[in-house]
């Protein structure tokens, strides 16, 4: 069980990282100083749940909470909903589906607005997950924004990724864009009470067979719990399996950071006086666009390409 006090302190720690008041190291150290670092913490199973809007992700997460609790495991949920790109406001509605666990001290649920970050997560989601882990939760479930296409950010955060979809009419697999087989560890066709669930599952199984990895394709009715025990069995099998996702997650995160760093570098280079002089000559028609690019490229420190 997690102390009530830890819920409050964890919640405030998440706010700190979310609002850029303090970084992960500082907030995690403070949580520990507050006595919320439990023996064995830092080894939570992190489960990502992603899929299109309205597929039943939150309802399924509610079932996962129920199952993990029945097994005596404590659960933290970080649920991300989209921020409006115009007002930056957000309605965070995932929690509605999980509110029945509000009285259980073994369950912590935190909604996060995506704060206009792409990728289906919020900028601070990763740190929120780490903080929940540090606070001693056995399982951390991350629900992404309902995404139409493949969003890869979750790869860097979760150990196991559950892709939830629904029975589609007509071109079922078309709704699941290429690339999903690369991130999915488990496919769930939810709303199996609707027509077309079998056909969608069969299509997915064909798609999976073309890939290199073995990915179970399950059917659930999150609303009444049908098929959820099979999902737990699949999750259990993944937890014991060799951790190739860890390698993938590290690669993804390092590539992302390298890219961000390169972008920062490039922007700084463009602000330099030398670059400004070249851009000035471009503006005065003394250079062509391609000449300007050729002259600027070496300033990035990267390879120079001829055009």
């Amino acid at each position: 069980m997690i102390a009530r006090r830890a819920h409050r302190d964890l919640a405030r720690a998440i706010t700190s990282v979310e609002n850029g008041i303090a970084d992960y190291q500082v907030t995690a150290a403070r949580l520990a100083a507050q006595g919320h670092r439990r023996e064995g913490a830092g080894h939570a199973a992190i489960i990502g749940v992603t899929g299109p809007p309205g597929a039943g992700k939150s309802t399924l997460v509610d079932r996962l909470i129920e199952g993990f609790r029945a097994n005596g495991e404590t659960v933290a949920v970080i649920a991300v909903d989209p921020s409006s790109p115009f007002t930056h406001g957000a309605v965070l509605g995932d929690r509605v589906r999980m509110q029945r666990h509000a009285g259980d001290a073994g369950v912590f649920i935190r909604s996060m607005a995506s704060r206009s970050a792409g990728g289906g997560l919020a900028p601070a989601t990763r740190d929120a997950v780490r903080l929940a882990d540090a606070a001693g939760f056995d399982v951390v479930v991350v629900e992404t924004v309902g995404v139409g296409q493949v969003e890869l950010e979750i790869v860097a955060v979760a150990d196991v990724i559950v892709v939830v979809t629904v029975p589609a009419l007509g071109d079922s697999v078309q709704t699941i864009k290429a690339g999903l087989t690369e991130i999915a560890d488990i496919f769930v066709v939810n709303m199996a009470d609707r027509p077309g669930a079998n056909a969608t599952a069969v299509d997915l199984k064909h798609m999976v067979r073309e890939g290199k990895r073995e990915i179970p394709v399950l059917q659930t009715i999150a609303r009444d719990g049908t098929g959820v025990s099979e999902l737990f069995a699949a999750l259990g099998a993944r937890r014991g399996a060799e951790d190739s996702n860890a390698v993938r997650a590290v690669r993804f995160e390092l590539v992302r950071r390298a890219r961000d760093e390169a972008v920062r570098h490039a922007l700084a280079a463009l602000d330099s006086p030398d670059a400004a002089a070249i851009l000035e000559r471009l503006r005065a028609h003394e250079l062509t666009r391609n000449d300007a690019i050729d002259l600027l490229l070496p300033m990035l420190g990267g390879p120079v390409h001829a055009h």
Binding site: H7, R8, A11, R12, I14, T15, S83, T87, H88, G89, A90, V91, L92, G93, R95, V96, Q99, A102, G103, F108, I109, R110, S111, A113
Partner: peptide, 24 residues
Amino acid sequence: GMEVVYTGLHQTPEMIVTAAVQED
């Protein structure tokens, strides 16, 4: 421009306060 957590119907005071704590 606010971030609004919505918890649904029939909330007890305990459920409301738990949500307020966790959502900060």
